[in-house]
Computed example of a mutant assay.
Amino acid sequence: MQRLKQDLAEALREEELFWRQKCREEWLRAGDRNTKYFHNCVKGRRIQNRILMLMDDNDQEHFSEGAKGSLAVDFFQRAIH
């Protein structure tokens, strides 16, 4: 049973890799031109990489860009000292 689970997990990883490579291939073919496809890819990556919320030391959520920036600066200043 354990071997079947490992085989399934490996097959799923390979399928995910296949689709990533397929997407990359399409990007290389069409993404370097100023196309609608290129702009949608950029917009999608921007949305995917966005930090929506940060939590402070008191477990309070902060959504505004200013608050998130302040939390990040405070965090890294404390890490340095």
Rank of each mutant, 00 (worst) to 15 (best):
R3Q: 15
R3C: 03
L4C: 03
K5M: 06
D7T: 05
D7E: 13
D7K: 13
D7S: 10
L8K: 14
L8G: 01
L8F: 03
L8A: 12
A9D: 14
E10D: 13
E10N: 10
L12P: 00
L12V: 08
R13Y: 12
E14F: 05
E15L: 09
E15Y: 03
E15A: 10
E16R: 13
E16P: 00
E16V: 05
L17N: 08
L17K: 12
F18K: 15
F18T: 02
F18R: 15
W19P: 02
R20T: 07
Q21A: 02
K22Y: 15
K22W: 15
C23D: 11
R24T: 04
E25H: 06
E25S: 05
E25D: 12
E25A: 07
E25R: 04
E26I: 10
E26G: 00
W27I: 15
W27Y: 15
L28S: 02
L28D: 13
A30H: 11
A30W: 10
A30T: 06
A30C: 09
G31C: 13
G31N: 12
D32F: 07
R33E: 13
R33V: 04
R33H: 09
R33K: 11
N34G: 05
T35F: 01
T35P: 10
K36M: 05
Y37H: 13
Y37Q: 08
F38S: 15
F38P: 09
F38E: 13
H39Q: 15
H39Y: 07
H39F: 11
N40P: 00
N40C: 09
N40R: 14
C41E: 14
C41Q: 11
C41K: 14
V42P: 02
V42G: 01
K43L: 08
K43H: 06
G44E: 15
R45M: 14
R46A: 12
Q48E: 13
N49K: 15
N49S: 11
R50H: 14
I51G: 01
L52K: 10
M53T: 08
M53N: 04
L54H: 03
L54Y: 04
L54S: 04
D56I: 05
D56M: 06
D56S: 01
N58I: 00
D59E: 11
Q60M: 06
E61T: 05
E61Y: 03
S64F: 02
S64A: 03
E65G: 00
E65P: 01
E65A: 05
G66C: 06
A67P: 00
K68L: 07
G69R: 14
G69I: 03
S70W: 09
L71V: 02
L71R: 14
A72Y: 08
A72V: 06
V73H: 08
D74W: 02
F76I: 14
F76A: 05
R78S: 11
H81G: 13
